[in-house]
Design a protein around this nucleic acid. Sequence first.
DNA 1: ATCGATGTTCGACGTTGATAGATGAAGGCG
DNA 2: CGCCTTCATCTATCAACGTCGAACATCGAT
Lengths: 98, 98
Amino acid sequence: MRHFDHPDLDEVALARALSALGDPVRLAIVRTLSDGGEHQVSEMQVEVSQSTLSHHFTTLRKAGVVFIRPEGTRCWHSLRPEFEQRFPGLLVTVLGLE
Amino acid sequence: MRHFDHPDLDEVALARALSALGDPVRLAIVRTLSDGGEHQVSEMQVEVSQSTLSHHFTTLRKAGVVFIRPEGTRCWHSLRPEFEQRFPGLLVTVLGLE
DNA sequence: ATCGATGTTCGACGTTGATAGATGAAGGCG
DNA sequence: CGCCTTCATCTATCAACGTCGAACATCGAT
């Protein structure tokens, strides 16, 4: 079984969270996930390769932004609710901007 | 006379702004400037060299976060009010977190 | 067992970023 | 004028990041 490490949000620094959000591709990912649902990697509509996309998901996961739930051969990605509690208002504010 | 280029805020992407804020040293700088006043580089209390500090100020300036007003031999740094208009609530939210 | 779908991991490459030391520019002061 | 203060910039080094293709892993289906 595949294993994905999700960090304790208390150990995620603000600078790390901001840095994780500070990339156009990762912002696009977060926007897609912001509907609250679970999404596969293949649903992301960005013009980067699959491996690059996977790398960005890893960055977001290590920053505590996204949660990955493997199911069979697929991976369902969603925003971590704890992120909002750790950094209240941050994601809402960022997603409201462009 | 020294010349400092301050970008048009409309040309600053959200990802760039977040990336600029996504560094511990630069967050400390922004916190110091958040009193609304003008500050010199020497007032910053971070354990990096002066040239590194200057580099971080350049990064913040190019991201539209800070304004530099040279006066004689000194340089007065302050937050750009336009930043709040370009990214409403972002700075307030970030500064309210830790 | 083999195939296909879905992602991850592994080099590799080029770009960017962080850092420090040395240098330079501007002005105040004696 | 020469010296000091202040701080940007230049140069150099090293690490980190974004990107890709290829190889690998996992699982369901055939």
